[in-house]
Design a protein around this nucleic acid. Structure first.
Ligand SMILES: Nc1ccn([C@H]2C[C@H](O)[C@@H](COP(=O)(O)OP(=O)(O)OP(=O)(O)O)O2)c(=O)n1
Ligand SMILES: [Mg+2]
Length: 418
DNA sequence: GCGGATCAC
DNA sequence: TATGGTGATCCGC
């Protein structure tokens, strides 16, 4: 029993990954979307070339100087290491898909995705075996998995179940930080102490409780800080957990072999840059090449990279801050009909205004976001003296911005606010 | 303050 | 036929 693969991401034996890749490629190739992606990739390669050139320009004296800077910074960061707190990151498994399966149990065991032919939000683990992923267009997913079942998104349902999970989280940390509908960070230091339980024991109990209250499963990571807890929750997904003890050696051993892409905040582009311009693929290499990072990146970025190499992350509980912007955007099929464009703009302005009313919000910087027929994204902003919120005012400013861009063939528009 | 990019979910 | 929506942050002007 215990020998069955628990991790569907790892449990991919007997799956032809190359064939999957080929299907995705063949289906995308030649599309406007794909052409834009290729253009972005070319730009990225150029950016990497520039960084390599800058790197090559560093003199021996520069290198030794920045090595000193990095060494000093590493010591300073090390001095801030806090191993006194226990953080838990909880992450629901295939969240939207799991909720949909609860309301329709006949979906159980069948490959299923939430979304439509244009885009899917997530897929259950059965579908993931076929290579179906979040943020993949449905028509490609169907080529990977012809029997894939599509279920439309229903945010109300997900919000409801999210609230149920949060009632459980609250019991373990009244100040827990919700990271999204399906993720939360909990400082379980106090509850561990009060109940004389280990982080792992609390995680087992919390996951059981979430399951009893919702019928859903989740995974958990327990670690001395949030950055590490997040990495840990992914390790034994789905329906599993992983504990990293509050011990410096344990942290260093864990982080050193870790691919940098596993770290929150390091995405596809950063991974590519660090690998191709600096030969950095693991967190240990972040430290080893600290001098280069200090020479070529800003203070704050270099600091972030170095703390990743040390496995240092936030352990405080920040104040819940109010939102900084609100936005509404829609994608529609490309058109150069100006009347139609203004009509769409008016609709979006109306939606934005409705949302702002709900929150009693006003803004003074309005940003119009445009996506051209070739998937290029542009934004144009204005800031007014006064704060405003009426759909008329929003439309007035947005129309002015749109007018300056005409004539243009647009897929979509957005309006956002600060 | 603006515009482009990146990232997460 | 068809490649999302929302919010945040950073960099280099
Ligand atoms: N690009 C994305 C990624 C995710 N989501 C939504 C659907 C997911 O169900 C939910 C949670 O995201 P996760 O990354 O946690 O993914 P899942 O919970 O679906 O799967 P798992 O956490 O088991 O990997 O957010 C989305 O709309 N668009
Ligand atoms: Mg999840």
């Amino acid at each position: 029993m215990a020998l069955l693969p628990r991790n569907a991401k790892a449990g991919m034996e007997g799956v032809d990954k190359e064939k999957m890749q080929r299907i995705v490629y063949e289906t995308s190739k030649g599309s406007k979307y794909f052409e834009n992606e290729e253009k972005k990739e070319a730009l990225l390669r150029q950016k990497i070339e520039n960084m390599r050139a800058q790197r090559a320009k560093l003199s021996a004296a520069d290198l030794s100087h920045y090595q000193t800077v990095a060494d000093r910074r590493i010591l300073e960061l090390e001095a801030t290491r806090d191993l006194s707190r226990i953080w838990l990151h909880a992450d629901m498994d295939a969240f939207y898909a799991a909720v949909e399966t609860l309301s329709n149990p006949s979906l159980k065991g069948k490959p299923m995705a939430v979304g439509g032919m244009s885009m899917i939000s997530t897929a259950n683990y059965e579908a993931r075996r076929f290579g179906v992923r979040a943020a993949m267009p449905g028509f490609i997913a169907r080529k990977l998995c012809p029997e894939l079942i599509f279920v439309p998104t229903d945010f109300k349902k997900y919000t409801h179940y999210s609230e149920l999970t949060r009632k459980v989280f609250e019991k373990y940390d009244p100040n827990f930080m919700a990271a999204s509908l399906d993720e939360a960070y909990l400082d379980i230091t106090e509850v561990c102490k009060e109940r004389s339980m280990s982080g792992g024991e609390i995680a087992e109990e919390l996951r059981k409780c979430v399951n009893e209250e919702t019928g859903l499963t989740c995974s958990a990571g327990v670690a001395p800080n949030r950055l590490l807890a997040k990495v840990c929750s992914d390790i034994n997904k789905p329906n599993g957990q992983f504990v990293l003890t509050n011990d410096r050696m344990a942290v260093m051993t864990f982080i050193f072999s870790l691919p940098i892409r596993k770290i929150g905040g390091i995405g596809k582009v950063t991974e590519h840059i660090l690998r191709d311009a600096f030969g950095i693929s693991t967190c240990e290499e972040m430290l080893q090449k600290g001098g280069l990072l200090c020479a070529l990146f800003s203070h704050s970025t270099a600091d972030f990279f170095l703390s990743v190499g040390l496995g240092i992350g936030r352990t405080d509980t920040p104040q819940v801050s109010s939102r900084k912007s609100i936005s509404s955007e829609r994608t529609f099929s490309a058109t150069d009909d100006e009347t139609l464009l203004y009509q769409k703009l008016a609709d979006i302005a109306e939606m934005l205004c409705t949302d702002m009313k709900k929150g009693g919000l006003c803004g003074r910087t309005l940003t119009l976001k445009l996506k051209t027929a070739s998937f290029e994204v542009r934004s144009r902003a204005v800031t007014s003296e006064k704060y405003f919120s009426s759909s008329e005012d929003i439309l007035k400013y947005a129309s002015k911005l749109l007018k300056a861009e005409l004539p243009i063939s647009l897929r979509p528009t957005l309006v956002s606010f600060q």
